[in-house]
Simulated assay, not measured.
Amino acid sequence: MPETIVLDANGPTVAFPRNFLHIKLLADNYPQVDHILFREEFMRAQLLRSFPAEKLIPIGREIRPGQGQWNLPRIFATNRRYTREKIAQIAALTPARIILFLENEPLELALIDHFGIERFELWEEGVMHYVDMNNLYLFRLRRMVQIACGFYPGHPFLLRLPRDRITVRDRFDKCNLQMRIPEGRNLPREAIAFVANVLVADGHITRGNYIKALGKLVEMAPVPVVYLPHPREGAEEIAAIGAALSGPKFSIEKPEGGSLQHCVDTDYRLYLSPFSTTLLDLQKFSKSYWIPQHFALGSYDRALRSTDRFPVKALPEEALAACLSSAAPVEAGAAP
């Protein structure tokens, strides 16, 4: 059982969740948190399901070139000012403890340098918390672009915080966090759920190759494939996927309560994903598989298949066809 997380006696606790998993872990383990920072507006509704509005503090984010903004000196100055202002805003909360989920992003690193690492806790981010699946070339390129745009420049190529100097909480190593599975109807559906990651926008794969790999998956599947987009996938990206793969064996659904709640409510034949942590959260392990190799994500495939830490396994490409065939409907009167 996870250890009890107690209130700090000497000041407020601030948390900085970055996605729905982080919100769920925070709600299940430390609902008494004093202040919650959030960047993306799509997270507000999910936060309000678990926390009162007065705890929520929107902090926006740095800006990037594009969408009509190409004045690099102005972008640089704006982002430097953003970091200073956010540090001052958070300092005004007088935090005794700050809970982070990401350990190598510019704003998190700026906060650590300002307040000192001893004041922080690092909570599970997802699969990446346990295994390093970074493409070092893409990671370093992204950081250099960020620095050129005025993001916080400290520790530019840091992948991991020194975990001997910070309190770490997670579900599978330290076993000092828990996650309660939400209640659901678990209604049977003759389909395969595909839980998406942000592969195209994050530079892991081109849109054309992503759609091609999805199309092959749909073609191999004996039942329809239901695509559950990641919250960060843009409308243009989702529309392009839908237009390319439109047909009776493929659909895109954006459940209001998020992919986890939808998958708890719906008992699919299989749950597949490149590497989404949702497959761990769902806890339907006997029919959940990561398939990074199908999308040519070599570093992710090697990292996931090199560990026996997780109850969800990464499936090699040569085993995918047999896995998909197991999703075929059982004919009436046939042995299951």
Results as ranks from 00 to 15, higher is better:
K249T: 13
E237M: 09
S259Q: 04
R232A: 12
G257H: 10
A235T: 08
P248F: 04
K249L: 11
S246T: 06
A244P: 00
E256S: 13
G234I: 05
G257W: 02
E256N: 03
P248M: 05
G258A: 15
E256A: 15
A235D: 14
I241T: 14
A239M: 07
A240L: 06
F250T: 10
P255H: 02
P231K: 05
L245I: 04
G242W: 01
G258M: 14
P248C: 03
G247V: 10
E253M: 09
L245S: 05
P231T: 09
L245D: 07
E233L: 11
G257F: 03
E237A: 12
R232M: 09
G258Y: 12
E256I: 10
E236R: 08
G242K: 05
E236S: 10
G258P: 05
A239S: 13
A235C: 03
P255V: 08
R232S: 13
A244M: 06
I238C: 07
A244V: 05
S259K: 01
E233Y: 01
K254G: 06
I241G: 11
I238S: 00
P231F: 06
G242L: 01
E253Q: 11
H230C: 12
I252H: 02
K249Q: 15
G257S: 08
E236W: 08
G234F: 03
K249W: 13
G257D: 10
P255W: 00
E253D: 08
A240M: 01
F250V: 06
H230Y: 07
A244I: 06
F250G: 10
I252C: 07
K254Q: 15
P231L: 06
I238G: 03
A239Q: 15
A240T: 02
F250E: 12
G242S: 03
A240F: 01
K254P: 01
A239C: 10
R232T: 04
S251H: 02
I241K: 09
G242Y: 06
G257Q: 11
A235R: 11
I252L: 09
P248R: 08
G242D: 13
A243P: 00
S251W: 00
A243R: 12
S251T: 12
I238K: 03
G234N: 10
I252F: 05
I238P: 01
E236G: 09
F250Y: 08
A244E: 03
E236F: 11
A235S: 11
A239L: 11
E233D: 09
R232N: 15
A240Y: 00
L245K: 00
I238V: 15
E256D: 05
F250W: 12
K254H: 14
L245G: 00
G247Q: 08
A243F: 00
G234L: 02
A235L: 05
P255K: 03
I252A: 09
A239P: 09
P255R: 01
K249H: 15
H230K: 13
A243E: 10
P248A: 09
G247T: 07
A243M: 05
S259W: 02
S246Q: 14
S251A: 14
K254S: 15
S246Y: 04
G234C: 04
